[in-house]
Simulated assay, not measured.
Amino acid sequence: MSNKEQEVLEKYISQHNLKITKQRRAVLEAFLNCEDHVSAEELYKIVSAKEPKIGLATVYRTLSLLTESGLAAELDFGDGQKRYEMNYAHEHHDHMICTECGKIIEFHNEVIEKLQEEVAQKNGFKMTSHKLDLFGICKECQQ
């Protein structure tokens, strides 16, 4: 586990008069090791394999802390299940979501980024953040 992410979480927790627990550290470590956009239930399965006494509610609460502290981003791809991805010290990217298999493809396109900025500027809109999610059918599901 990266010391930087642990420091961010511990600082956030102490500022809010909470305690850093073994369970919270276990959730953070499992989250940092996830390559995918993980749901709370998926993360719970990973963490509980190493920490059998951990509860699903602890995973939900810790994911909330990770999101509030800026370590995680909460994503909603319209499938009724919130997913989480690393947010700390990660480059901005957008997503393509397959509506058949649920595959999530991350991408970054400078032309799209520039167009979004131009649209905002033309409309006198000060953009503070944005996200772009494209829904469709991936190459594998089209075959």
Rank of each mutant, 00 (worst) to 15 (best):
L56A: 13
S48T: 08
E7K: 10
N33S: 10
G78N: 12
L9G: 01
E68G: 09
N3D: 07
S69M: 07
S39T: 14
L132K: 14
H90V: 14
Q121F: 14
L75R: 05
S48W: 00
N123E: 13
H37L: 10
R83T: 13
V59R: 01
A49C: 03
T62E: 05
D94N: 15
N109M: 04
Q143E: 14
N3G: 13
F135T: 11
I97G: 01
F77K: 03
G124R: 11
G124L: 15
V111R: 04
A49W: 01
K22Y: 12
Q15T: 12
G55H: 05
N123T: 11
T67P: 01
A30I: 02
S48D: 03
E117W: 02
V27P: 00
Q142P: 00
S14T: 09
T21H: 02
N17G: 09
V27W: 00
K4L: 05
K103S: 13
M86K: 07
G70F: 02
E68Q: 15
L56T: 10
E41D: 15
E91R: 15
T67R: 01
S129T: 04
L134P: 02
E140W: 00
V111D: 05
L66R: 04
P52V: 14
E42T: 15
Q23T: 13
A30K: 01
E74Y: 09
Y88V: 02
T62G: 12
F31S: 09
G78K: 01
M127W: 05
Y60Q: 15
C34T: 09
A72N: 03
E110I: 11
L115Q: 15
V27L: 03
T67N: 05
G80D: 05
G124W: 07
L65W: 03
K22W: 10
Q81S: 00
A40N: 11
K4R: 07
K19L: 13
C98K: 09
F135G: 05
V111W: 04
I20F: 02
L28F: 01
A72I: 03
A89P: 00
G55N: 07
D36W: 06
I13L: 15
F107Q: 06
R61G: 06
H90E: 11
L32G: 14
N123L: 13
C98G: 13
N3M: 10
Y44Q: 11
S69H: 07
Q121V: 15
T99N: 02
Q23K: 15
T67H: 10
H108K: 06
E5I: 05
L18D: 06
K11F: 04
L132G: 12
H90Q: 10
G78R: 05
Q143Y: 06
S39A: 14
K11H: 06
N3W: 00
E118C: 01
K122I: 14
D133M: 12
I112D: 13
L43N: 01
L75T: 07
A57M: 03
K4P: 00
D36R: 08
E140L: 08
E100C: 08
D79Q: 12
I54Q: 07
E100K: 12
C138T: 15
I20L: 01
L28C: 04
T58I: 13
T62D: 02
E74A: 12
G78M: 04
T67I: 07
Q143F: 08
E110L: 11
H16C: 13
A40M: 02
K126Y: 12
K53S: 10
N123A: 12
I137V: 09
N33H: 04
E91Q: 13
D79P: 04
K131R: 14
M86Q: 09
M1R: 00
F107R: 09
